[in-house]
Design a protein around this nucleic acid. Sequence first.
DNA 1: CTCTTGACTGAGG
DNA 2: GCCTCAGCCAAGA
Length: 116
Amino acid sequence: MKPETLNFFDKVYQVVLLIPFGKVTSYGAIANYLGSSKSARMVGYAMNNSHQKNVPAHRVVNRKGLLTGKHHFDGSNLMQQILESEGIVVVDNQIQNFEKVFWDPSKALKPLKENP
DNA sequence: CTCTTGACTGAGG
DNA sequence: GCCTCAGCCAAGA
């Protein structure tokens, strides 16, 4: 008796923390890794609280590679600056070479089972 | 309890 | 490729 939704938010934070430097992922990819691909919105919702955590939310974008959440950062271009600081090219709020910098937790990490 | 909003995604036109 | 609609789950009013 242990629904996956038990620590959904915490799991989101864990996955985001595992994103390698210079890589990005999408909300759906994280949700899919957690076993709830339909809960992509919840990932974004969880990110809303990430401002009080040490979570690199700037590495999480939507499936188009668009910086949809940049408005949640202090500056209007802070998110883009951080990404460029990591070697990611961003033009007009959209990540260039998105497929090359995309990091899929479902493939990079082991299947979700348990977390130490 | 019901209704709205939201850092989303996939399918259809 | 772009636009629109519906589904999804959680939190707040």
